[in-house]
Computed example of a mutant assay.
Amino acid sequence: MLDTTALLDQIVPASEAAAVAYGVSVLTRTQDEAANATVRLGQRLIGRLLNRDADTAPDSDPVRTVVVRLAEAGADPDVLALRRAELRIALRTALTDTPGLAEELSVLLPTPPPPPAVHAEGERSVAVGGDNSGSISTGDGAGGAPRQ
């Protein structure tokens, strides 16, 4: 099972870029050679999302409604933030309610870079391959809390 939150973190920015760049026409526009990769990816994602259920009336699709609202939001940062949140919620609902959709969309996404390679050598060595927000301590009697 794919991580819905991680998938949303990749889908939302691309979908938003397509909606903002092309407005309502993103719903029917074919790929434009001059568009950047993020907008083209957003177009493919939105196209797949909107064509997932041929029996649904187009105007009743929550994703379509939110994409239109985002495209019409203008430049007000508060309205854009609200529309982004609405898009994320609509996409989360679509991903959780439609079996196989997450896997279909993940195929369209670029392969994430591999995690950084790390190596620790020697007694009590430590290697961190990503972010660390806590203490790292080694040695005899290491308690994890800094001394005061």
Rank of each mutant, 00 (worst) to 15 (best):
D55N: 13
A57S: 12
N51I: 04
A90N: 02
R44V: 14
L91H: 04
I89R: 15
L82A: 13
N36C: 09
A21P: 01
A75W: 10
V79F: 03
I89D: 12
E86K: 03
P112E: 07
L27C: 07
A17N: 04
L82T: 13
T96G: 11
G47T: 07
V66Y: 01
A75I: 11
R48C: 09
A37W: 12
A71V: 03
R64L: 03
A54I: 10
A35E: 09
I89L: 13
L82V: 09
A37H: 06
T98R: 06
G23R: 03
V63F: 11
E103V: 11
A85L: 08
D61P: 06
P113T: 15
A34Y: 12
V20S: 03
V67W: 06
D61R: 06
L87H: 04
A75E: 14
L108I: 06
I46W: 06
V24D: 15
R92G: 04
D61C: 06
L105K: 00
A102S: 05
T111Q: 08
T38D: 11
Q31N: 09
V68N: 09
E72F: 08
A18L: 06
G100L: 09
A90R: 03
V79S: 08
L109R: 00
D78S: 07
D97N: 06
I89S: 13
D32C: 14
E16K: 11
V67I: 11
T30L: 14
T93C: 07
R84E: 06
A17Y: 04
T38V: 13
L109G: 04
E103P: 03
L108C: 06
R92C: 00
R69T: 04
T28W: 05
A37E: 15
V63P: 01
A85E: 14
A17W: 01
T65G: 15
E72G: 10
A54Y: 04
V79E: 14
T38H: 11
T28R: 09
L95V: 02
A85H: 11
A34M: 10
A94M: 01
I89H: 14
D78K: 13
E16T: 12
S25A: 09
S106H: 12
L80H: 07
E72M: 14
R84Y: 01
T38I: 08
L91N: 01
V66G: 06
P77Q: 08
A102E: 01
L80W: 08
R29T: 02
T56S: 15
D97P: 00
D55G: 12
P77K: 02
I46T: 08
V24R: 14
V20H: 05
S106M: 05
L108D: 05
E103S: 09
I46A: 14
R84S: 07
A21E: 08
S15K: 09
L105T: 04
L45H: 02
L95H: 04
V66S: 09
A34L: 13
A90G: 02
A90C: 02
E86P: 02
E33C: 07
V26P: 03
G47L: 04
I89F: 12
A34H: 10
V79K: 12
T111V: 08
S106N: 15
R29K: 14
G100C: 10
T98W: 08
A102W: 02
Q43I: 11
P77A: 01
A35I: 10
T96Y: 03
V24K: 11
V24L: 10
P112K: 00
L70N: 00
S15E: 10
S25T: 11
R83M: 04
D55R: 10
E72C: 10
L41E: 05
